[in-house]
Design a protein around this nucleic acid. Structure first.
Lengths: 241, 241
DNA sequence: CTACCAATTTGGTCAGACCAATTTTATCTG
DNA sequence: CAGATAAAATTGGTCTGACCAAATTGGTAG
């Protein structure tokens, strides 16, 4: 992800992963800034900048007397990406929860977008869907166009809240899945059905139907991803033996 | 919100609000750390810590040559709270989007919770609902119990992703509404209906029904809040005259 | 064992310095 | 005059060393 090259970022990332790996207990005191500086062979200033970032992430609370670890469920969602990345394989449960959440948000986006789309935007969306159907075979091309479709949907819906949540999650998650080589496989028939259902929703300006369609799509995606992870896990264990 | 008393936090908050108030254009360069230090009569170290926080918020990007403003929709959701607070009154559109988003997430939480609740947890939930019905008159008491109910629902659902999003949003938003004295008024009949519908959902373990109920509740809440804000706005304008 | 006080530790902040990379400015050239 | 080029100024990244106030720790007296 963020290949930030400064020392303070490196320290922040290291400490962040250590915290996420539960190497510190909640409420426990982090080593002092001076100790951390010594450990990382850096200046106190650099350490302080790192801690400042971790505090913004909600992982620690800095106060006179020492920085203390916070409960993970009090953190910012910005830690979800790193949290999925701390282990070789992402926690399947976490991934599932992510997709579930992403599903309802996408459904909301679709609902909103269709409700407020202008005729022109509606036409654009339909055109994009049409093009998507044509590339049914090419996985790469479809992936890209699919993302563009979702992006355009988000633009039309113009819900900043959902948008920001998406920013914090999407990139981190997708990248993580990609880099691990986890490719969920969905039946061509299922995809075709999804596209048809969406086309129908757009043609009839049926926001609810589009929402339900996305919901179903994500439910199936969850299954596919779950299977893909299991598969990957099996191959890892094979390697280990 | 965070009444953090350190200078670096103060600087961060000030700069954050200035950015959110669009006093800088996207891509524009922030004053140099040395200039900012002079302006705030602080040391460069303090300024750097502040900028480090803003970078974590996704508001700026720091790189050799200067810190630059980022597009707002590339920021973290942690800015939503401050974004609602920069003006005297929160942007009604933003509030509406927030409630919409919060609605689908709550619906998801309810669905998940009911699906995976143990018999004991189910009983607890029903008990809580029962108690809620008894306090139908007392707004304060109900508010508190209602929040406890939602909190317990979230605990049962145990979806970390939704949980984290909630953390970033709920406190900020609710506090903001409270501090502005915005009290959405909902008809007692509506509330009664909501409670009954929820009771029914729980009794029959109908997750979908509960989800729909919450969805409807939030739709009505959106209307109520919208009206409350309009009202507040009118009274402000009165004062101004 | 408890309550209280002193010594130590810890975070918060500042000042001044150096480096590498970028940006700006001045200069030269066609 | 325009464009390429080199020099100068600016900027972020980092370090050292210092001081203060608040919190923690340890010892001591009751």
């Amino acid at each position: 992800m963020s290949a930030n090259s400064t020392i303070s970022h490196e320290i922040a990332n290291l400490l962040r992963d250590e915290i996420l790996r539960s190497q510190y207990r909640r409420g426990e005191r982090l080593p002092s800034e001076r100790d951390l500086a010594a450990r990382f062979d850096a200046s106190r200033g650099a350490v302080r900048e790192a801690l400042s970032q971790l505090e913004q992430l909600g992982l620690i609370r800095i106060l006179p007397g020492g920085a203390r670890i916070q409960a993970i469920d009090a953190a910012s969602i910005a830690i979800l990406g790193p949290l999925m990345a701390v282990n070789d394989l992402p926690d399947p449960l976490l991934v599932d929860q992510f997709l579930q959440t992403f599903g309802v948000l996408t459904a909301l986006t679709a609902r909103t977008a269709i409700n407020k789309a202008s005729n022109e935007e509606m036409q654009d969306l339909q055109d994009m869907l049409e093009r998507l159907g044509m590339h049914a075979g090419d996985f790469e091309a479809m992936q890209t166009q699919w993302r563009e479709f979702l992006e355009y949907l988000a633009t039309v819906a113009d819900n900043l809240v959902v948008r920001l949540i998406g920013n914090d999650l999407k990139a981190q998650f997708v990248e993580q899945m990609m880099s691990l080589g986890i490719n969920p496989v969905m039946k061509p028939a299922t995809i075709k059905q999804l596209l048809n259902s969406l086309k129908l929703s757009l043609a009839s300006k049926d926001a609810e139907m589009a929402a339900v369609t996305f919901q179903m799509h994500f439910d199936e995606l969850r299954i596919a991803v779950s299977e893909a992870i299991s598969l990957k896990q099996a191959s890892y264990q094979k390697q280990a033996v």
